[in-house]
Design a protein around this nucleic acid. Structure first.
Lengths: 130, 130
DNA sequence: CTAGTTGCAAAGAGTTTGCATGGCG
DNA sequence: CGCCATGCAAACTCTTTGCAACTAG
């Protein structure tokens, strides 16, 4: 049995509306700011469940775990780039990379998990600064 | 001025001899087990310095930050894959990926930092298990 | 009513910082 | 001897766990 609570509804809603990645703290802050009190543990517990269900994907960053809605499959087929200078997150659709991943799977026997792979580098803006 | 201490020598040695990735805790444990007492803060401070120098690369994981020796430039020009199931670290030389990075730089204006990019996925062994 | 859910508080793990002591040069 | 480096302890952040109170079905 799974109960349908206000907190769950709000967390889900926030996740779906957040294009990028979101930390547990972001969620708590958002709900609190919106007037609904929510405990940290509730958020973590719910995220864990979503993770098991596959509705959400998680990747580690230096500021803690980031979560991203994955249930709608919108983010399943593109790549993520994080700028190590400004922290910007870019979403890129790229056939060239598709080919590379395919190649890696066939030639190097490694199944790249797009959901959890984040390319680190320097974005356009930051590159032009220095 | 930079002093040359026993701790630094030992940390460096351990990093160079560790093929894979290593956490701060691993270093402390290793030195302690080898008979040399070392403070956690010493390890973190030294790693930070190495990071700035570029002698070491860091990536986040759910168990904390992982560090990897990079000073000998052996690892500069190839790609790293981490298996999310068994934790294995693979080093792959791949022209296909070179092409893809080149493409990303030209078409998407993003400079991929090979040193810090780690592909997550599932390795051959683990894939065949399930 | 009953079992799943919540929020608080406390416990843990990893990392950082302040400060007095120690040791390289 | 002076200055950098070290190590301890305390502070912090993120995350997990225990438990009593609460609530959806």
């Amino acid at each position: 049995m799974v109960y349908n609570t206000k907190q769950k509804k709000l967390i889900l809603e926030y996740l779906k509306n957040s294009k990028g990645h979101v930390t547990a703290g972001d969620i708590v802050k958002h709900l609190t700011d919106s007037g609904t009190k929510v405990g940290t543990s509730t958020v973590y517990r719910f995220l864990d469940r979503l993770l098991e269900e596959g509705s959400v994907r998680r990747f580690a960053s230096s500021e803690g775990a980031c979560y991203q809605w994955a249930g709608d499959k919108e983010c399943k087929n593109h790549y993520h780039f994080v700028c190590s200078r400004c922290g910007a997150l870019l979403h890129v659709d790229c056939g060239e990379l598709d080919r590379a991943c395919e190649h890696i799977y066939k030639e190097h026997n490694f199944t790249v998990d797009l959901g959890n792979t984040v390319f680190c580098g320097v974005c356009e803006k930051c590159a032009s600064k220095r």
